[in-house]
Design a protein around this nucleic acid. Structure first.
Length: 240
DNA sequence: CCAGACGTTGTT
DNA sequence: GTCTGG
DNA sequence: CCAGACGTTGTT
DNA sequence: GTCTGG
């Protein structure tokens, strides 16, 4: 699955890469992040049909279906399986009408170890370049009148690079598909889905990571230079 | 017809 | 074991 | 995703 | 809201 990622690229570079205007007031939302977790507000890019342009949006990571009685259901819906997303009542409308892209420049997956432990690994695309996770979003009206905008990241089977670490991986949009994925005029997503594949392993790289990332309160650049456990380095070296 | 679920991950 | 916080 | 809490009463 | 189970 995908339950943690980074977005450390400068806000102006993110806006340029995904073609949106960086409105004032988004400085904090787009501050460099090294440990983004479910339950937080995350930066997304959507195509606003009325304005006919791409806009940044802050969405709660964890989707709340519009019919939900309790928004706490979001805790279980931070991901949506690509294989079934078009059939699930919780996701179907969002897939048709509310697709979005989540800017990122790396993500974490945990490898279950023999002793029942978890060893984090860090994954990047194209030598650390920005990319977009394929995601869907939804709105939920609170009885008190307030509204929650929320999202779920799509997942799929792992590519060859990820398979030794984990049995799922997030769906990363091929850049040439980004425009169609965001296009709100496309309300039949079926032709898009075959283009969503496990991202090519040869365009990604991976490394074992410091267990400090386990603690979601730690969100600073020192994580990236903190050494991983020696046994995980050894495990990783054997894969090559 | 009404009642009750609706989801993912990991783990067993 | 399960729920909440980050 | 992982980490960490998880409870009451009375009193200050 | 919509689908499934009874």
């Amino acid at each position: 699955m995908c339950g943690r990622y980074t977005l450390k690229t400068k806000a102006t570079d993110i806006a340029r890469r995904f073609h949106f205007d960086l409105n004032p007031g988004l400085e904090d939302a787009f501050r460099p992040r090294y440990n983004i977790s479910p339950g937080q507000g995350i930066s997304a890019v959507i195509d606003d049909r009325d304005k006919d342009r791409r806009v940044p949006e802050i969405l709660h990571w964890g989707l709340v279906p519009s019919w939900a009685d309790d928004p706490a259901i979001a805790r279980n819906l931070s991901n949506a399986r690509l294989e079934t997303v078009d059939a699930k009542p919780s996701f179907r409308d969002a897939l048709r009408y509310r697709r979005c892209l989540i800017p990122a420049d790396g993500f974490y997956e945990w490898k279950s170890t023999a002793g029942g432990g978890k060893a984090p690994h860090y994954f990047e695309v194209e030598d650390g370049a920005l990319f977009g996770f394929a995601a869907i979003w939804e709105h939920w009206a609170h009885p008190d009148g307030s509204e929650i905008l929320s999202c779920a990241l799509l997942t799929t089977r792992p590519n060859a690079l990820m398979a030794p670490i984990h049995d799922r991986m997030p769906v990363i949009l091929p850049p040439e598909l980004e425009a169609a994925w965001l296009d709100p005029r496309i309300i039949n997503p079926a032709p898009l889905l075959p283009h969503l594949q496990p991202y090519p392993a040869e365009k990604m790289r991976a490394r074992p990571f410091s267990p400090k990332v386990n603690n979601a309160r730690l969100d600073d650049p020192s994580l990236l230079s903190d050494p991983p456990p020696p046994q995980e380095i050894a495990f990783f070296d054997k894969l090559l």
